[in-house]
Design a binder for these strands. Sequence first.
DNA 1: GCCAACGTTGGC
DNA 2: GCCAACGTTGGC
Length: 162
Amino acid sequence: MTRPLSPNLWLMKSEPDAYSIDDLKRDKKTLWDGIRNYQVRNLIRDEMKEGDLAIFYHSNAKPPAVVGLMKIAGKPTPDPLQFDSKSKYYDPKSKQEMPRWLACPCQFVEKFKQPVDLATLRKTTALRNMKILSKGNRLSITRLTLSEFKTLLKMAAAQFKV
DNA sequence: GCCAACGTTGGC
DNA sequence: GCCAACGTTGGC
């Protein structure tokens, strides 16, 4: 296995009612849990690594928008909620010795001064292939190309420099 | 393995 | 609240 030299770039969705960029700003670090989709689980298991960068997207928001930047702060770890019978993310079929679901540690980097809403994203030619804009893509974590990542940072007037 | 029924996501 | 576009479940 070769180790990629540059960080992977991701877009990660969260409903602000559940967990927002302001929550992350307050917490500084969080365990990104509640992932219950096998494609996404495989992505973080097989491809996500410490040091990767992720754009934070508010879904089901008014308006939906990219709102900030975070960094992957460690290896994916078993999602504790799958074993919590009181959680809505409880999975009775998952066993301690063979956990089914993973969560990933995320660290706050910045909240964008200029969040970019979905309508604006759709109008941006440089983002026309961005996964989140293609019809039918509902995955909560998707990859960004370097070009898409740079475009988003620029539009959002980000502090972070690639 | 097929597929109908059901559940979820998320924009609008 | 509606609904398109999935994903999951379980009977067969």
